[in-house]
């Protein structure tokens, strides 16, 4: 029973952690996601980017984890952005209000980018 429905790929670059998540980020995948991302979140020196191109499903479990990531990164004053959000995922981000916090961090990121 190990045909995984969720995949995570991490690509470390000089200035950023690029994370690609694919498949279904639900309760069953939550622990795998947490384990993979936790060490990266604490690296405040680098930008954290999560790409959602191939994310086919998310619910409150995944959204809650994004909120936790946002909180941790904000406390550290470190930027965290999500990219390539599929429309059906974006719809849930909008409904729950989490997209509001993402636009906030994206603004910060732009300012940080402008200074460098």
């Amino acid at each position: 029973m190990d045909r995984r429905r969720f995949h995570i790929v991490h690509d470390e670059q000089p200035d950023r952690h690029l994370v690609y998540i694919k498949g279904e980020l639900d309760l069953a995948a939550a622990e795998q996601f947490r384990r993979a991302v936790e060490p990266l979140v604490d690296d405040a020196a680098k930008l954290l980017v999560i790409r959602l191109d191939e994310l086919t499903y998310i619910d409150s479990t995944g959204i809650g984890m994004f909120v936790a990531l946002l909180k941790t990164r904000k406390k550290q004053g470190a930027p965290f952005i999500i990219e390539n959000v599929p429309p059906k995922v974006q719809r849930l981000f909008d409904l729950t209000g989490v997209s509001y916090f993402f636009s906030e961090t994206n603004d910060i990121t732009e300012r940080v980018g402008g200074q460098s």
């Binding site: 619910d59 409150s60 959204i63 809650g64 909120v67 936790a68 946002l70 909180k71 904000k74 849930l92 409904l95 729950t96 209000g97 989490v98 509001y100 916090f101 906030e104």
Partner: peptide, 24 residues
């Protein structure tokens, strides 16, 4: 309730599941 009503520090995600059920 949706999350955007509060500052990020005060956001709690409990209740989000029920909120989504009602919204969807």
């Amino acid at each position: 309730a949706p999350l955007s009503a509060k500052p990020l520090e005060d956001v709690k995600v409990g209740g989000l599941g029920l909120f989504l059920m009602e919204a969807l």
